[in-house]
């Protein structure tokens, strides 16, 4: 099948997936016992306030009508307002989504930057000390609970060594003296764009502990996946040919073998990236990194349905497109893979 045709078919399917997700989340979040009108009014509501809130929120209409209203607003780019805080969800997402993305992307880069070379070496020198160490690291990374690791890191690097800050995205004083102009919402990029290196350093220092903690699971996976694919690929004949031709080891491992071995690693990493968007809640809470995870958890506890649906949609969009991009990338990287 030609690539563009495949792409269009996938995009149409994605729209159906998204639509299905909105129906399911909308229904579920509206049938769980709760009272959105009371949530809207806040503590100590009066009967008049509640009936007015029902009208404002359109809760007096039948559920299908409510859903159609919601979807038509959504198609115009309006996510609605949070029932709990009355804030427009789009405004909230503008702060929370970049915060999470900055953290998760940093974590994935760490996982890739450390995990890939380690995995390659472990696979290349299978059975040696390097392999043993890499495997030990992989097992430790995957099995250590992140919340425990987060607290441990805080204890060591903040309480004992005073090297790194304990929580937040910036320190209080820097925040007061260096007003940040929101361009992308990524503090590292925004501060670099503004040429404010003191701010950049502060943002970077705050990113290290949460990003490292969050990266551990993906790091363990990366090492394991890369290692096993490497082991497999290195037995292929073209590698033997390359060796016979006298190419340097480094070139064989990192150029010829890795190119074929990297695909499963990227798939795993891609899925782990999307999972972390809302799955990083424990790390977000421990490091006071106010992101999507914290946002949606608070919404779930209060049954703040517009927020729950909005975040679900965002995450679904990420899932759909990352999957698509991964398939696409795989086809480019490996001519044997056909799309269809």
């Amino acid at each position: 099948m030609p690539r563009w045709e495949y792409l269009i078919r996938r995009l149409i399917l994605s729209v159906l997936v998204l639509l299905g997700v909105t129906v399911i989340t909308f229904t579920i979040s509206r049938v769980v016992p709760s009272n959105p009108a009371a949530l809207w009014v806040g503590p100590r509501p009066t009967q008049e306030q509640i009936s007015r809130a029902r009208e404002i929120l359109g809760l007096d209409k039948p559920l299908p009508v409510q859903y159609i209203r919601y979807i038509s607003a959504l198609l115009q780019g309006d996510f609605g307002v949070s029932v709990r805080t009355h804030q427009p969800i789009l405004t909230d997402l503008r702060t929370y989504l970049p915060a999470t993305l900055e953290l998760v992307i940093a974590a994935m880069l760490i996982a890739l930057g450390i995990g890939l070379p380690l995995g390659v070496l472990a696979g290349a020198y299978k059975g040696t000390l390097v392999d043993a160490i890499a495997r030990l690291i992989a097992v430790a990374c995957v099995s250590m609970p992140t919340f425990w690791l987060a607290l441990l890191f805080q204890l060591i690097f903040f309480s004992n060594l005073h090297w790194l800050p304990v929580s937040g995205r910036l320190s209080t004083v820097i925040k007061l003296t260096h007003p940040i102009e929101q361009v992308t919402g990524f503090y590292l990029i925004d501060s670099a764009l503004a040429g404010d290196w003191e701010l950049f350093r502060d943002a970077l220092v705050h990113l290290i502990l949460p990003a490292f903690t969050l990266s551990t699971y993906a790091l363990g996976l990366t090492i394991r996946m890369t290692r096993s694919s490497m082991v497999e690929v290195l037995q292929e004949r073209y590698i033997t040919t390359a060796r016979a031709a006298g190419l340097p080891e480094r070139e064989i491992f990192f150029k010829f073998a890795l190119k074929n071995a990297i695909v499963p690693t990227l798939t795993v990493l891609g899925l782990s990236f999307v999972y972390s968007l809302t799955g990083a809640i424990l790390i977000e809470v421990i490091f006071s990194w106010h992101g999507l995870g914290t946002y949606v958890t608070e919404a779930v506890l209060a049954v703040d349905f517009p927020v729950i649906i909005a975040v679900t949609i965002i995450v679904t969009v990420f899932y759909v497109f990352i999957n698509l991009a991964l398939d696409w990338f795989q086809a480019i990287l490996d001519p044997r893979v056909t799309l269809g």
Partner: peptide, 20 residues
């Protein structure tokens, strides 16, 4: 990937050291 593999391993460690 050859170039990438050599450099990336150090990046994260460097960042940690600068910060520390």
């Amino acid at each position: 990937f050859g170039k990438y593999g050599r450099v990336t391993g150090l990046v994260a460690m460097l960042a940690l050291m600068v910060a520390a």
